[in-house]
């Protein structure tokens, strides 16, 4: 059985402080509940899974490992698009450069334009996913 030292009862000020603190915590708990997604409308954010599915077909044409190049759209979505492409094509390393023998194109929102002259289209997999041969490999 634990031996507990006897302590003084909490003063009225201490009790009030603890009560106030706990009530303020519960206010934040209410905020947590209000910010939580509604259980009636749980719709998974499957952005990664959708990205995996977009690149599933082209992945069968790519080597299992190694480094390939990447070209994509400009704009606000360019960085997350590139990151998601790398995530989908791992364990391949996707270098954001067209100076590779194989280059993956990712144009989910608009058709590609102003492509570098070294790129030769090998196959269009639909949904903005393109496979290129790069002329000046590293």
């Amino acid at each position: 059985m634990p031996i507990l030292p006897l302590s003084e009862s909490a003063s009225p000020r201490a009790k009030a402080a603890i009560l106030l603190f706990t009530l303020c915590c519960l206010l934040s708990t209410i905020r947590i509940l209000r910010q939580a997604p509604s259980p009636a409308r749980v719709s998974p954010d499957n952005i990664s899974e959708q990205s995996d599915q977009r690149f599933a077909a082209v992945k069968t044409r790519l080597p299992a490992t190694g480094v390939i190049g990447y070209i994509g759209e400009s704009g606000n979505s360019s960085v997350p698009d590139y990151y998601l492409t790398q995530y989908a094509l791992a364990p391949l390393v996707v270098d954001r450069s067209t100076k590779h023998a194989i280059v993956i194109g990712n144009f989910p929102y608009s058709p590609p334009s102003d492509l570098p002259p070294n790129l030769r289209l090998l196959q269009d997999f639909g949904n903005g996913v393109l496979l290129f041969a790069g002329g000046d490999a590293r």
């Binding site: 634990p2 507990l4 030292p5 009862s9 009790k15």
Partner: peptide, 29 residues
């Protein structure tokens, strides 16, 4: 022989309120 540091000594109503608040915050979390 386990000897704890002295805890805050609260009246039963405040202790119960604390326990209930902990349960609420945990369930909400």
């Amino acid at each position: 022989i386990v000897s704890r540091l002295p805890d805050l000594r609260l009246p039963p109503w405040l202790q119960n309120f604390l326990m209930a608040s902990f349960a609420i915050s945990l369930l909400a979390a």
